[in-house]
Amino acid sequence: MSMATTDPRAAGPAPFVPQAYRVEEVTRELADTVSLRLAPLDGARPDFRPGQFNMLWAFGVGEAAISISDVETDGSFVHTVRAVGAVSGALAGLEVGTRVGLRGPFGTGWRVAEARGADVVVVAGGLGLAPLRPAIQALLADRARYGRVAILVGARSPETLLYPEALAPWQRRPDVEVLVTVDHAGADWAGRVGVVPGLVPRAAFDADDCVALVCGPEVMMRFTVAALRHAGVAAERIHVSMERNMKCAVGWCGHCQFGPAFVCKDGPVMRYDAIADLFSIPEV
């Protein structure tokens, strides 16, 4: 039985087949974390929205979903990869000149433009700063269109703070409030010690008219959302970036399901009110 509708999209590019990219630069960020700058071997880098991810494939090892943490004007993607498994370990060990497969970008992005006219609170925990960095860059590039901007950053320790070279210029700007905290530190650390949700009451923003962008480990996001809600931020103005197992990135493999959502296509960036009921159910 031929289908009732003819489908012009069937001729489109197969979302499974990667494009070949070359590792242009490897930057060690943390002991177990590197940033890879990847440029396409043929053609131009596709457009992306801050918050989206690519599927990176290491030859003979496999594929992993890695958020886009920066782009360069030369047309390359930057991905920050932490070596936690076989695939991410192989990606984090790549050398300049290696060819990798890349497909994407996939998923939803931070709705940065929706925050125009309002205050913006960005809350990043650990590697959660990676997918938020392009959003922060977009905010700062268009700074006049937003109200107050607060960037709250948490990490395990001073040594594991991501992108210190990016944080420093943000901290120097008079029109951005950057608060940094770490969970654990020695007495030589002059900064804050405490968990990142604890920064929420310390930041200056109008809870009635602000948008919050939150990314980090799920527990950190739950506590942060609680702090934001306590401060009076409406659930529908809080956006979080979820993480689940992903194989296909287009909603076909089923692995990333989070209740009714496919994190790969309905996320990773999701409005908190859409998932609030699921957030605290174990093993969803």
Binding site: F16, F59, G60, G62, E63, W252, C253, G254, H255
Partner: peptide, 30 residues
Amino acid sequence: CTTVEDHSDLAGTRAERVRLWDSCFTLDFS
């Protein structure tokens, strides 16, 4: 639901990606 497997030859010149039925009942799935 499906998963994928990557195969490569010993020389490291050729690789392929195979899609296989998977089940949400496996521990590995999530």
